[in-house]
Write a protein that binds this DNA or RNA. Structure first.
Length: 378
DNA sequence: AAAAGTCACAACCGCCAGAAT
DNA sequence: TATTCTGGCGGTTGTGACTTT
């Protein structure tokens, strides 16, 4: 029962609109209204299909369109709405006067999506990403930081790594563990200012505590490592075999951020193939080039103050508890867009999380926005 | 200065739902 | 009821502008 595309007719122009065409279209609609879009081109003297005219008008020529950069408020609104509505650009656009769905969609695809990814969030679910393999190069760099026996130094750090740390905190919060010392660091790109403050959690602290986040703070199977000497002088001559042994031991014991098995797998893989990546030097771990976004690309890490350094182990019971206490991947109840359909099968794949757009943004983001509050209450 | 790469965004395409016939 | 028309939507592409090498 298909019908031919509206632009199949011979002689109809496609491509960019000329100023003359714009003028004809605007002039006609101002005088007559658009009426039937199919009939409009002929009446307005345009060699375009009605659909092209409608898009040109609604996305570009309409007088009430606000052009220019999106304000921070608009950006936040889009993030909030997208976390609930998903890719319902037209629905999102109704809450942003003067902005078209096309404009919002473009802004999302070119800015916000990348921003979320960089922060370690899945842009579709708004939840922390779990595809740790994708971050493997960064995590390999972090592996050097994880080793508390390495001397404090000026370590390069990338925003994405901070995003991963942010994930750790969010997961821990989601797990309902209130006993952890760790508080969520601000996510990047606030990292530069974060690093410049007297925030009690240094990067090393965060990493160490993040192991608690995914294990049990009362775990009896914690793998204790040697604390640094009292004078703060650390052994620079660490035996590589011993180092690798510890790493493998950690992986084998299901350690470190292990609410996803892939991270353990990563850890095992990293430790077994890390002779090139896991140097034992006083020099900082090399971070991927071009990814450093803090002001000078570095962060000063003071000596850790823990009595013991440990890679917290997770008992299988606790591991299970942690997994079950995490928020579900799909919050369909909070996402009418996912429930009500409207996603094409090609883009959503039915039950794909990309269709659910479950919100995992902090509540403050929701409460700040009157619309979001209303939405949440209804 | 030129080539290559990246970004931003206008425009197009195909599909869908509802209205009209 | 079946078919066609129409407007709308979301995904994708093409291309010019800009940046980097």
């Amino acid at each position: 029962m298909g019908r031919s595309p509206c632009c199949d007719e011979n002689g109809l122009k496609k491509g960019p609109w000329t100023p003359e065409e714009d003028h004809k279209l605007v002039h006609y609609i101002q005088n007559h209204g658009h009426g039937s879009w199919r009939a409009l081109p002929k009446l307005a003297g345009l060699k375009r299909c009605g659909k092209s005219c409608r898009l040109r008008w609604t996305n570009y020529l309409r007088p009430d369109i606000k052009r220019g950069k999106f304000s921070p408020d608009e950006e936040q609104t889009i993030l909030n709405l997208h976390s609930i509505l998903g890719n319902k650009w037209s629905a999102i656009a109704t809450h942003l006067p003067g902005r078209t769905d096309n404009e919002i969609k473009n802004f999302w695809n070119t800015h916000l999506k990348k921003k979320l990814i960089q922060m370690g969030f899945d842009p579709m679910t708004h939840r922390p990403r779990t595809d740790f393999f994708a971050a493997l190069p960064h995590l390999l760099a972090l592996a050097n930081l994880v080793d508390p026996r390495r001397p404090s130094a000026t370590w390069p750090l990338v925003d994405r790594d901070v995003g991963l740390l942010h994930q750790c905190c969010l997961y821990k919060q989601a797990a309902g563990d209130h006993n952890c010392l760790m508080q969520p660091p601000p996510p990047p790109p606030a990292f530069a200012s974060y690093a410049a403050t007297d925030h009690p959690n240094t990067c090393v602290d965060l990493i160490l505590n993040s192991s608690e986040a995914f294990g049990s703070s009362s775990s009896s199977s914690a793998l204790l490592l040697e604390p640094p000497p009292e004078d703060g002088q650390m052994d620079m001559n660490i035996d590589e075999e011993e180092d690798l042994r510890l790493l493998r031991q950690a992986a084998a014991a299901n350690l470190i951020m292990d609410n996803t098995s892939c991270f353990t797998t990563w850890f095992a893989a990293a430790s077994s193939s890390s002779t090139d990546d896991h140097h034992h030097q006083a020099a900082p771990a090399a971070a991927p080039a071009g990814d450093i976004s803090s002001s000078d690309g570095t962060i000063n890490i003071p000596p850790p103050h823990h009595d013991h350094y440990f890679l917290a182990a997770t008992s299988s019971e606790h591991h299970q508890m942690m997994s079950s206490s995490l928020p579900p991947l799909i919050h369909s109840s909070s996402n009418p867009a996912a429930e009500g359909g409207g996603c094409s099968s090609s883009s959503c794949g039915g039950t794909s999380p990309s269709c659910s757009a479950a919100s995992f943004w902090p509540d403050v983001l929701l409460l700040d926005d009157p619309f979001m509050s209303d939405f949440a209450n209804n």
